[in-house]
Design a protein around this nucleic acid. Structure first.
Lengths: 357, 357
DNA sequence: GGAGCTTGTGTGACCGGTCACATCCATGCC
DNA sequence: GGCATGGATGTGACCGGTCACACAAGCTCC
């Protein structure tokens, strides 16, 4: 079945009507019989305008359908109130949720939000430069290599804040940034699985922002640390090439073949879903034969069967905090809250349990 | 477990360095020993500039770290090349995918993209007005009531295009718009279920952009039509209050209690996931006892168990086409492609099957 | 050798707002 | 009555670019 859709592309402009230019404050001024400066005063709510004058101007604004030109305003006043988000992805849950937090915060502060999706093909420097030319600040979602390298390339004179993967101990990101402690979260999740009685825990990695080895991301580090603390030699991590369920399925097929695999930590819930599916196909029950824990707590995680145990992340909080950090650079009198955001949270559902072995 | 995160908010400005203003073309001109106009010519690749002069200017641009002020450019040239998307949601699959298509198209055409999330609380007219003040066009995602009413309120002189629910037969949306024929898609999906041997098909609705009755959306209409064509009186539709899995679960619990329910069409995949979960809890097997079909083909639909049969929608194509429609209004010499986009596609996986009855 | 064209470059006005300052007028006060 | 005060309004410059046009120098051509 392939049903074609429709498009309605009517030119919704009357036949005789000219696409006449938008009214400026001077047009309004003329219509109201005042100077353009008075119109400006009315627009900005300046107190020293007589009641009658104000009314006359407001009437003129109404009849002419005047809207203040934001471009001219920005140029003349030097106030931009806009930020652009640089991200390599907008649909994956972690990114989308961060973006949402960013948007909420920006909107609440009266900022407009631009979004620029980074692709490996385009010239990063050019992209950044044109995004920065807008005048406002830059926000970078640096969960992956593309985002991280974009962050590194932002010129020093451009206001910028980022949300990133937890940086290696003692190392600071190139710009003001916020992050969640997913290293510790991964450690705790792994420790929990060991405590359940599993001999070891396998890891299916997400791509990471740092290095090329898939074992280097903070989640992988936390997993490794938990194993080492328990005196277990970490097995070779899987994955690291993709974020989606298909990637998880591919890795899951391999893992399912190994009877020694009884516990799997996944870098995100999509991967976990794929792993779950592969285990199901291989006839291995979850959590009976294998425990699986995801990461991020995507909206559907609790509704698949078996319901996915996972680590909840406060992506929206991350977005909000990162925006506050940027705002602190943009407005000299704004003090970004120093609070650390709400952290991570291990949520146990059905996909993890005591091993049968 | 509650691990707090960190924020690194260092002021990455050296102690002695002034936050000195960005260089303008006149600064560059002075540094290169030419007039500002010559700098402008170099920036715009004007041919009539001597090789040596060009090099000198480019060197000055490099040393001063000059970036052309996009605001001033927009004001002076009258070219904006930016569009703002008005949407009530950014994370739900259909919205996110549409947004992605929009962004791709905008980016490819050299436009920057703004996003403004609509909430029931904020003043629509004010929001629209401030979004339109940017100068560029407006794109509205009108899948729901909020989006649809925003679309209706966009002033006639503001360039605008939308992606909407399929409008009622013969009716046109208030602005140039694109849509998928989900009415027909729902009809086909329902007909397929009937053909499998089900006596009737129940419907769990998504909220819709039109009217208040949950039966009025195009998907509901298609479902109803298929039943009527088969001489079956449509049962009362369920849902219509939410988009997410929890809403689906709530409706699924009710449906699970009714042994007469053997086939369920859901307004989206999230709802279907919730329904699946509720059926599972009630001990009714899918597709053995009940067939379930979703809508949208979200990324995880194929990886849940049982894999979800669903209707694939080309949201990205919708986004691209809507952008082309807007671009046609913004650039007088740009002719939007008249092609109808790729349509919907019923994808059968595991959650639908022949009834046991 | 000057008219006429092309090439390279500079000047002034303008886009649509804001800001600093000047002006006009009505008060209040001594 | 003279003067400081302050409210209401207007004027000119400016933000950082672009555009239209002027103009000088070099070249061709008759």
């Amino acid at each position: 079945m392939d049903v074609t859709g429709h498009t309605s592309s009517g030119n919704h402009r009357g036949p005789g009507q000219e696409p006449r230019k938008a009214a400026s404050i001077r047009d309004v001024a003329e219509a109201a019989g005042v100077s353009y400066q008075t119109v400006s005063r009315v627009l900005n709510g300046h107190p020293n305008v007589r009641e009658v004058t104000r009314n006359r101007v407001e009437a003129a604004i109404e009849t002419l359908g005047f809207r203040r030109n934001a471009t001219a305003f920005a140029l003349a006043s030097g106030v931009t109130r806009s930020v652009t988000v640089l991200t390599s992805n907008t649909t994956l849950y972690g990114y989308a949720a961060t973006l949402q937090g960013l948007e909420e915060a920006a909107s609440a502060a009266g900022y407009s939000l631009g979004v620029k999706v980074l692709t490996p093909e385009d010239d990063l420097d050019r992209t950044i430069s044109s995004a920065a030319a807008g005048g406002g600040g830059l926000m970078v979602i640096g969960f992956d290599r593309l985002g991280a390298s974009a962050l590194r390339r932002v010129p020093a004179d451009v206001p910028c804040a980022a949300v990133v993967e937890a940086p290696p101990h003692g190392r600071r990101p190139p710009r003001p940034a916020v992050w969640a402690d997913d290293r510790e979260a991964a450690r705790a999740a792994t420790a929990y699985l060991l405590q359940l009685g599993h001999q070891t825990v396998h890891y299916v990695a997400i791509p990471t922002s740092v290095g090329t080895r898939r074992s280097e991301g903070p989640r992988a580090q936390g997993w490794r640390k938990a194993l080492e603390e328990a005196g277990i030699t970490p097995p070779e991590p899987h994955g690291g090439k993709g974020w989606d369920a298909q990637a998880g399925y591919d890795e899951g097929e391999q893992l399912a073949r190994d009877p020694g695999v009884t516990a799997i930590l996944c870098g995100n819930d999509e991967l976990a879903l794929g792993v779950l599916r592969a285990l199901h196909h291989a006839g291995r029950s979850v959590p009976g034969d294998v425990s699986v824990i995801g990461f991020d707590d995507a909206p559907h995680a609790g509704f698949v069967t078996p319901a996915l145990s996972t680590v909840r992340m406060d992506f929206q909080g991350l977005g909000r905090d990162a925006f506050a950090l940027l705002r602190g650079q943009l407005e000299s009198d704004y003090q970004p809250p120093a609070r650390t955001f709400a952290g991570t949270d291990l949520v146990i559902r059905e996909s993890s349990g005591v091993t049968d072995v």
